[in-house]
Design a protein around this nucleic acid. Structure first.
Lengths: 187, 187
DNA sequence: ACACGGCTAGACCGATTGGTCCAGTGAGGA
DNA sequence: TCCTCACTGGACCAATCGGTCTAGCCGTGT
């Protein structure tokens, strides 16, 4: 997993993201993480002087960037807002199935349950805001009446949907999400 | 906190629920937990032979029962389904504010991030099913056209809404939830 | 050819983890 | 009165935690 040719720093970030999503910040030990990334302790503390917490923030940011790209890739080629929503939900459903269906949202897994450090929580909200404002942008572009509120609702549906999908072990929940968005009016 | 007259076992369950919600299963050490509950280690392993994991399941079940009562108390005196939803969302918003606005859903905090034990995940879904079927029952009672689907959606909105509320540090998200439920038709 | 510095490798550290074990303790029944 | 047993209190344990530190590898610039 997470192939070898990548530079050590990137390998650390990717495996950290992966493991934190699976077991949460406190649920992953450095030894397990370093073994999975095939990196020695020295490298970790070279690239991330503050150790685990620095790495966690980097991992969450990296995962968030991926999500941001997924949102953009769903809405940009779409002919309507709802078409973008549909594409996004299907992409996320696929991601869910690929993840083994037990992972948590990368940001909440990594940052909300981290040390009670305020900066962790602030960063989490910062990343979430990025997702929401990206959706808001597209909602506005398609002339939706209440772009901010619609973006909020989509975010809520995705977060809650992911949770229920995880409990049910089925991505069907995620695929059914578009029908629950009030803006499903077909203009 | 969690006053003294309660029997030790109950004190353990309550403080476990509280702490797990704040920091997650792996984020709370036994020493911290026992200190908060003012109980010695011997008592923990007397009441819960399997230690932390047994306690976690008991704590999640206890928290879930409280939620179940809150759902019932919201819908039973209501004159319509939407009135019940409104009441429930406001109750939860209050709970959110009282919790310090950083806690996680007690079940996902306790069970989803616990040991990768399957029984943990199964129990989590079992508890969630309890919530959803309670809502389904009331939806059917009020003659809603699609009771199961409506209950699912309410669950999704509550889970996602809680998450966004936590990020934003504001319970307004939760209070606005009823308006996002498609069944908001006023019959 | 040599020195420099980014990076790796892993031994080592004290603190804390979850868990075990047993000697009390004290209320209730015989 | 004494026995019993559910319960408490805490010493103790190996394992693991996150983190520090230093020795050396190796590519690059001069």
């Amino acid at each position: 997993m997470t192939e070898r040719p990548l530079p050590t720093k990137d390998r650390l970030i990717r495996t950290a993201a992966e493991l934190f999503q699976r077991s949460g910040y406190h649920g992953v030990g450095l030894s397990e993480l370093l073994a999975a990334a095939d990196a020695p302790k020295g490298s970790l503390y070279h690239h991330f002087p503050n150790g685990k917490s620095d790495l966690a923030i980097a991992a969450a940011t990296w995962a968030s960037d991926g999500m941001l790209r997924m949102i953009a890739a769903s809405f940009e080629p779409a002919d309507s807002f709802m078409e973008g929503v549909e594409t996004l939900c299907h992409k996320i459903a696929k991601l869910f199935d690929k993840s083994g269906r037990w992972d948590t949202c990368p940001i909440s897994a990594t940052l909300f349950e981290g040390p009670d450090n305020t900066s962790f929580r602030d960063h989490a909200y910062h990343l979430y805001k990025g997702w929401i404002s990206e959706v808001t942008h597209h909602a506005r572009r398609f002339g939706l009446p209440a772009p901010e509120e619609t973006a909020d609702t989509l975010f809520i549906l995705l977060q809650g949907g992911w949770q229920l999908a995880r409990a049910r072990q089925s991505s069907d929940v995620l695929r059914a999400l578009p029908g629950k968005l009030p803006a499903a009016k077909t203009d």
